[in-house]
Design a protein around this nucleic acid. Structure first.
Lengths: 231, 231
DNA sequence: GTCTATAAAAAGATAGAC
DNA sequence: GTCTATCTTTTTATAGAC
């Protein structure tokens, strides 16, 4: 798909009116591209805020500053726009998480401390982008009506990303995890799962301290079960 | 609210056409009551299947076998009907869970075995009623648009129900749980949380064996962290 | 490709008869 | 209270000019 990653940076509409021809892209930063991005950005904000059915193409066009007809020219129909925005946002989040995991769990000194810092940063990063925080809720809401969404849930989750460093820690004798993938599920349930539960999948904003308490308690349980000499 | 608990039993529309006057109810089992229940039952099925926005009052009326005007006479508007159905269903689930917890955790022999049996029965019971299984997803989807729903999440959850017997087990020295409420959160995250995660909040049907595996692994972690002599 | 104007269908809610 | 018929608004999608 030829769309720029406007979704990664938030708003999506640029303030200046200039074009930037001459780049190597198929669509240099042109009026076309700017509109394309603006539509995607507006769609993300409105879908996340109001849900799929409650968001009209009219509203997306208005938010993006284009006519409704332009939205249809670029994306065909509402459903296609929705799926594209979901996928793009999902991948953006995944990239961020991968980066955070790499930075926190590559060279580990204290296991508990490293896991805590890693999970906290992930939770904080996601919750700081409200549109992206509500994405999970949106996916859950609309999955039954858009089977294509199921793929996002199963093949693009963040648990496998965490499983890798856990496997290395287990191999190094720092964790008692026979099955790193399963351990990652448990760590995820005890941290992200608890946060999502308390916040109602991002509906209710948690304070940082509240999130930290939940995460610490979850990791405490994880370490009691998986820490060295746990059995 | 004067509505019978048609939601507890599923379909909601009766087959016979007779009235049953003379009971002590304000509305004896009359034509009025039958229609009232039929509307609520139809609404539950359709809301659960299609979501709030996608479900039309026309469809509810058709499914219930009444005219659209009758729906408005009984419930005022769509939103009110929706909230009533949600609350009623939520309370029904809670009663079932309370019963299951009482039966499984009142007189415990083997702690791990009792917890496993209890959680399995809860998961199985809920997933056997598809309309009720999708209720959680519906609550999550619509909570931002119906603030009244937040109350359901916070004040009618099932975690407190589990916390009680855990407190007793802790007092009896069968569990190392200083904070039973927190332990209940962790047990819930490791079992229900994992099941919900895998099934996408009930979107994907899990096999019994799959659910059992997940539950067993979660309880294994819980017991390693909270079992006697865990520290 | 982008806009204005419009078609066509659907949905929430109500009027009025019985 | 219950029904049929209707009002009104909103929404998706497209026709046609530039």
């Amino acid at each position: 798909m030829g769309m720029r990653n406007v979704l990664a940076s938030g708003s999506g509409s640029r303030s200046d009116g200039r074009d930037y021809p001459g780049t190597a892209d198929r669509h240099p930063v042109s009026g076309w591209q700017r509109k394309h991005d603006a539509i995607a950005g507006a769609a993300l904000v409105l879908f996340a805020r109001d849900g799929y059915e409650r968001t009209s193409v009219d509203a997306i066009a208005a938010e993006a500053g284009v006519s409704k007809r332009t939205v249809y020219s670029h994306y065909g129909d509402k459903e296609n726009l929705f799926l594209l925005v979901l996928r793009e946002t999902y991948d953006t989040i995944r990239d961020r998480v991968r980066d955070i995991v790499d930075r926190n769990l590559s060279d580990v000194d204290d296991v508990r401390q490293a896991l805590t810092a890693c999970v906290r940063e992930i939770v904080r990063t996601i919750s700081q982008a409200p549109e992206r925080a509500t994405l999970v809720r949106l996916v859950i809401s609309e999955a039954p009506h858009f089977p294509a969404i199921l793929d996002l849930w199963h093949n693009r989750g963040i648990v496998p990303i965490i499983a890798e460093p856990l496997a290395k820690l287990a191999a190094a004798g720092r964790l008692e995890a026979d099955d790193p993938a399963l351990a990652a599920e448990h760590l995820s349930a005890l941290t992200f799962g608890q946060v999502n539960n308390k916040s109602m999948m991002g509906t209710i904003q948690l304070s940082d301290s509240e999130a930290d308490r939940i995460i610490s308690s979850g990791i405490a349980v994880f370490m009691r079960a998986y820490g060295p000499a746990a059995r």
